[in-house]
Amino acid sequence: MAELTYREAVAAGIAQEMRRDPSLVMLGEDVAAAGGVFKTTVGLLDEFGPDRVRDTPISEQAILGAAMGASMTGVPVIAEIMFSDFLAVCWDMIANEIAKSRYMTDGQVSFPLVIRTANGGAARFGAQHSQSVENWAMMIPGLKVVAPSTPADTVALMAAAVRDPDPVIFFEHKSLFATKGEVPEVEVVGRLGEASIVREGSDATVAALALMVPRALEAADRLQQEEGISVEVIDVRSLVPLDTKTLLASVEKTSRLFTVEENPRLCGWGAELISIVGEEAFWNLDGPLVRITTPHIPLPAAASLEDLAIPSVDRIYETVKSSLR
C-alpha cells in the first residue's frame, strides 16, 4: 500500500494504463508540460513523451473530435476537459457524435475513449467553474459515467474506464484532489457498474457520489453516535452502468432511501435512483424517498453562500434525523 492523494491517483491510474498499453495516448489543455491545471497529470510527459502526452490549443471541440476520430481508428485515448462546466462547449461532440455513432452505424464503430474532467464545487470558483454536471452525462444513451470518491477508486476506475470499449465520462472532483488514501502498489483494475457499500447500517440507506460520500459518512457517524440511527452509505461510483442490485438490496434491508446529490435539483441522478426504488421496491419502504440536493441555482462564489448551497454534513444529518423521527 502507498498513500496517495486523489490528484496523484489520477496520474497513477493513467500511468498504469499507459505502461500496459503502448498505444494509449492522452491530450488536453496544459496536460503535458504543466502537468495539468490541477496537477493531475504530473510526470506523464516525462515518462511517456510528447507523442503520447499532448498539449492542445483551447479547442474543446477539436480535443474531443481528435479523441473520437483516433479511438474509432484503433488508438485508445484519454482526453481532458479542464473543468466540467466547459463540457457545454463541446457537448455536440459528446451527446451527438461520440454517444450516437455506434448506434446509428449499427455497431460499425467503437470508441475506446475516456473523457476526464474536473467536476463539482466547494472550491469557491463561482458559477462557471463549479457545477456538478454528472447528470448531464448520465442522460445521454451511449455513454458510461463514473465519479470516484477515493484515491484507490480513482486508480481502479481509471483502469476500468480505459479498458472499456465504450466512451466513459470520468468525473474527478476538484475538492477531493487534496484528500489522501491508501492505494495498493500492485496493478489496480476496478469494474464499471459496481456501487460500493462504504458503511453498513440498518435504519436508512444514503446513496452518495464523489464529494458527497465523505460528507454522508460523517453524517452517518454522527447519526449513530448522537441519535442511535444506523445508516448504510452507498458510494454509487458508477452512474452508467448503474448498480441497481446493490441499491435495491440495501433498501430492502433498511426500508428508507436518501440520495445526496451535488448536482442542481432538477433531473439530478438521485431522481433516477428514487424512481427505480419507488417502482421496484415500493413495498419495502417505511417512509418517503428523500433527495438532498443543491437547490436549483447556479453556484455562488462566496464561501458562506456556496456552503449553504451544496449538501453539507449538517444538512444530511438533519434531513435523515427529522425524516426518521
Partner: peptide, 20 residues
C-alpha cells in the same frame, strides 16, 4: 468513416483519424 449531420463536428473527428 461516416456521414455527420451536425455542421462542423466531423472536421474535428477527421483530425482524430488523421492523428491516429
Amino acid at each position: 468513416m461516416g456521414s455527420y449531420a451536425i455542421i462542423g463536428a466531423h472536421l474535428c473527428i477527421a483530425n482524430g483519424a488523421a492523428w491516429s
